[in-house]
Amino acid sequence: MPEGLLEVDGLHVQYELRGGLARRVRGLAPEVLRAVDGVDLSIAEGETLGLVGESGCGKSTLGRAIVGLESPAAGSVRYRGETLGATRTRTQRRRVQMVFQDPYSSLNPRMTVRQTLAELLRAHRMVPPAAIEARCRELLDLVGLGSRALDAHPRQFSGGQRQRVAIARALALEPELLVADEPVSALDVSVQATVLNLLDELREKLGLTVLLIAHNMAVVRHVSDRVAVMYLGRIVETAPTGELFTNPRHPYTKGLLTAVPRLVPGRASVGAGVVGDPPSPVDPPSGCRFHPRCPIAQEPLCSTEDPGLTGRPEHLAACHFAWREPPPAHTPEVLQEAS
């Protein structure tokens, strides 16, 4: 595949756990949590890539590493062929912006919308000082808020409006890539649609590239061009959206799709979904990380050999049986110890 707008290569992000100092004093290595543990990912210019997976699998950490809010322990993030290090130039920072799940905590409560936007525009010299006011109005217009909103404080907005303000703030820096971390999860159902539609509109109008982190599979199916499925710090499958939903190759993806509650009454999942809980990223399972929960895991293969991503560049999956006849299903290991 051609080099994407953004290339993530062998990325590792680790958190040192509390008690690390005590362990070091005793000459032990501090315990680390491998939140992102070897991620390869490519985002093409102009696409919306959906990133899904259970909570704690490392989606936000990956997103934060991409915008430069986490420094990787290993691996690289390249943007238009240029490596983005832990310390970034102003331009590098500007190009990749993030919108967070909780618009309540990501905005300064004491500043009006005008103050928030104007300060950014000034600090980054986005427009000449005389043009700041006009640009503020333009930005609000872009996210569907009237310029009356300029003098309001965050608390005066509803959740959906606040998320629009947060998006306007990200757009103030004219980014090319927007990392949206669960941008609608905190919003009411009837409001989610308006924010999702807005993101889609902006992509068309401004030619934005979007990394959409989400846990709602129906949302992802509606707005993404391509989907990456993450499990315990790694990408386990990537494919164009239509293909991922109709022809998933990884047992985890299959289970995840089966687990989605459907609007059609009675179309209840009859399959097993995914059993058990995600294991701890401090001490991940050997071999294929999914093997304890996997209904088709084969011993000793799956608990000793890491399958790695294989397949066509457009559709990759990390399962030993992704591209051949899967063995018959059985009770996964996590449920076996139960009896």
Binding site: V191, H222, R262, L263, V264
Partner: peptide, 22 residues
Amino acid sequence: GLLRSVPDFDMVREHLSSIPGS
């Protein structure tokens, strides 16, 4: 309005509708 504004896993729409106001 509510049913039309939630993304339906089994039926992908070009555009999601929404309920105006709050």
